[in-house]
Amino acid sequence: MTQATQRPNARTSKPGGSDRASQMRLINGAKPPNPVVRGLKGVILLIACAMVVVPFWSVIATSLADPAQVLAEGGYVMWPKEPTLAAYEAIFRGGVVTRATLVSIFVTLVGSGLSVTVVALLAYSLSRPGSFGSSKILLLVLFTMLFNAGMIPNYLLIKELGLIDSYWALILPTLTNAFQIILMRGFFLEVPGEIIDAARIDGAGELRILTTIMVPLSKAVIAVIALFNAVTYWNAFFNAVLYINSTEKWPLQLVLRTYVVDGTAVQADVSGEMVPPQLSLQMAILVVSLVPICLVYPFLQKHFAQGVVIGAVKG
């Protein structure tokens, strides 16, 4: 269906571009769209996009605005005239927010690293045809998709394991995910058996096959699963409410809840005169919690549509 192969009578050739939109344009070419309908569509989509962009924009702008402007404009700023990082300096001068950010980074890195490792190992083990017990293990994993034990038994388990107020309570319970195991197993199954046989003949063991053949060939899916889990760990909120008691072990989401949602005053460790307004501090905390997600978002976006569709089909 490329331009080069087009012939006037060929039904399948679509001159004027190969994407769907231009093909549809060609089909309906004779009847131009109604201008009113077109305008209406534009307005709807513009409003929808503005509803997402404006809030985030205003949060970032307020966090960067200088105190005088924040006070002058009744607390909210759409365009910082003299951008300043004072609010960020205040929250990162080593107080609750600094510590919480470090906790969140630790939990996110360790959690996503461990989870993708555990998932990959299990998925590989289940992807070797006819290996001992693999069909039973697979059933064990699949069955977890059907139920959720509930909050109370989960809480009591963490308690009996002595993990209350431990970072491991935030990491361990969500390490495995049946859907991800099935997804990655699917990718490993796609790797041609001949390559694996060749490696085995050359004397490679299972671990070597996994690290030198499977992982490089499934880099994309491994990266996406790791990023997805990183976002989940970074965003995790309620596990911390349940399992973490001491304030100094709070992850960022809990700090965000306390200072921004509940509006408790931020104790910024500022000794000088220039204390940034509470609102700027709050917005700075909010920005700190959403920036990492915006950073990985483009990488996620490249792959997630496919992943979600596979998930939907495999249910």
């Binding site: 070797r128 001992f132 064990l140 977890t144 034990a149 038994p153 361990l172 319970p173 390490l175």
Partner: peptide, 27 residues
């Protein structure tokens, strides 16, 4: 023959049993 493969599965299976099935019994 599959002991290495099974070894690779151990952490995942352990976590699934501990954090998915044990709470089920905890009910």
């Amino acid at each position: 023959r599959d002991k290495f493969l099974l070894l690779l599965a151990v952490p995942g299976v352990f976590l699934v049993l501990l954090f998915q099935y044990v709470p089920l019994i905890g009910n």
